[in-house]
Design a protein around this nucleic acid. Structure first.
Length: 225
DNA sequence: AGCCAGGCTACCG
DNA sequence: CGGTAGCATGGC
């Protein structure tokens, strides 16, 4: 067992299943991997992936609830919406001018898919969708085996001496994916681990890697050094 | 009161 | 290329 998989095991043992991505109306769905269950839930995950950029998810829930109140969690409804009405609805998530544009750009792209799963490259061509947002949509919205790397992932691996500051998003993503593939053969299990692992890193990151100095009290250090 | 949040773009050297 | 200012609200 390599270090990456060992980290996963330790985190899962500590925090348990996380039930990401939370869906409005169900919340976190621990041990239930049947989500998203329809087109609108896929679209909701994608909107949430944009809205959560550099923001807490509680703020995103407010924005999504605002949109639900306007019955606007669908591509057709978003495209019919007045831009200022959209901005007002997503205001709680911050950067509302940018994110309103990002949501419109993504929604236009989304309608060209007719329900098909987008490629990662196509997503990256949409303004406002960077590597993490693309992986978020693919991993949680489309159940694709794309590991999502975020700031906590990098901080934690850095503190454990597994990566260096200079390592790129892509390098870290490949490290996570190749390490997990070494240990897990079943594709469904691999997807589940990708989904849980990222959520676990966020949970652990919130506790021990939010304020400097990072990693104070992090139990992973004792187990891996 | 200031720092941080489940990032991305544009522009700089 | 890698590095960074700007984007904005809300919570602690």
């Amino acid at each position: 067992m390599n270090k990456i998989y060992k980290i996963y095991k330790l985190l899962y043992k500590k925090y348990g299943a996380q039930g990401w991505w939370p869906i409005i109306g169900y919340g976190y769905h621990k041990q239930d991997y049947s989500f998203p269950r329809d087109e609108n839930e896929v679209f909701e995950v994608c909107l949430g992936s944009i809205l959560t950029q550099n923001t807490t998810f509680t703020s995103v829930v407010k924005s999504l609830n605002n949109l639900y109140a306007k019955n606007a969690i669908s591509a057709s409804a978003i495209l019919l919406m007045d831009i200022n009405e959209l901005k007002e609805a997503i205001r709680p998530s911050g950067y509302f001018n940018q994110k309103a544009r990002y949501i419109l750009e993504f929604t236009k792209f989304y309608t060209t898919l007719y329900g098909a799963t987008p490629t990662r490259e196509a997503l990256l061509d949409v303004v406002g969708i960077g590597e993490e947002t693309a992986d978020s949509m693919l991993l949680y919205g489309y159940n694709q085996r794309e590991f999502k790397v975020d700031a906590y992932t990098k901080r934690i691996l850095l503190a454990l001496g597994i990566i260096e500051q200079k390592n790129s998003y892509c390098e870290i993503k490949k490290l996570m994916e190749s390490s997990l593939k070494e240990c897990i053969n079943d594709e469904k299990e691999l997807l589940k681990v990708y989904q849980e692992f990222h959520a676990l890193l966020v949970e652990h990151g919130k506790k021990f890697y939010s304020k400097k100095p990072y990693g104070v009290g992090c139990f992973l250090k004792e187990h891996l050094r």
